[in-house]
Write a protein that binds this DNA or RNA. Structure first.
Length: 236
DNA sequence: GCGACAG
DNA sequence: ATCTTGTCGC
């Protein structure tokens, strides 16, 4: 069984009825990295999803020069991409942005926004990486662990890993690898734009992560889930 | 020591 | 992420 120090706890019935990993929220970088190392043992990158009817999106913005975190959570009809629910939450920012520790800065706000949703998403596309992270614990993976919900990381820039050139054709993708592991995919979401980085968050594999992401793409570089959440989080 | 570095 | 207008191009 995985090691679970006192500051990391396994909870069989979390906020949404699923098994979740609860833990304290340190403010110091060293402690955050230690929590990440323990959390890694609980990540599931094998498909374990319900039928996806409601597709969620989460994105975070900031105000007051960063002192206030503005989090947006949205739910779209997975079939029609119609927006069925939205929520906006403002919470005081607790941590600065530190590469590799983004989740400790953004998740508190994300949780506050998710709590306000009337419709619980079956799968959430998060703005940021999933396991495509130095310790395999990007914001999407971390959010999946603490909510118990399936998540996918959709990032606009690379954090770690390397990859071949991506053909300039919509839907083309190449593997993103790091230290001998496949940690995600680099996807050309539309011709003529910079590719996006897709990686499993929690309770999903790379193939399905790519499939669901592509199902939410229309004519833009980013999937509708993150586009809708993004405008909510940035527009005052 | 040097370079890299999600949002 | 955020500070910020117009502008080049399909």
């Amino acid at each position: 069984m995985p090691e679970t120090p006192s500051d990391v706890r396994v909870v069989e019935a979390g906020p949404y009825g699923h098994r979740v990993i609860d833990h304290d929220w340190p403010h110091e970088a060293r402690a955050c990295r230690n929590v990440q190392k323990t959390l890694t043992t609980h990540v599931n990158t094998v498909d374990d999803l319900p039928p996806v009817r409601w597709l969620g999106g989460v994105d975070i913005g900031f105000e007051d020069g960063g002192n206030t975190t503005r989090a947006a959570a949205v739910v779209l009809n997975a079939q029609t991409l119609e927006v069925v629910d939205t929520a906006l939450a403002r919470v005081p920012t607790r941590m600065p942005y530190i590469p590799g520790l983004l989740s400790f800065r953004e998740i508190p706000g994300a949780l506050a926004a998710l709590e306000q949703l009337a419709t619980l998403p079956d799968l959430i596309l998060v703005d940021g990486h999933g396991i495509a992270h130095p310790r395999r614990l990007g914001v999407a993976t971390h959010l999946g662990l603490v909510t118990g919900l399936p998540t996918i990381g959709v990032a606009k820039k690379r954090l770690t890993g390397s990859h071949a050139e991506v053909p300039d054709k919509r839907g083309a993708w190449v593997e993103l690898t790091d230290r001998g592991e496949t940690i995600g995919a680099v996807l050309r979401s539309r011709v003529g734009v910079k590719p996006i980085f897709i990686s499993p968050g929690h309770r999903i594999g790379l193939a399905s992560a790519l499939s669901f992401t592509m199902s939410a793409l229309t004519r833009y570089r980013l999937p509708e889930t993150t586009r809708v959440a993004d405008k909510l989080a940035s527009n005052r």
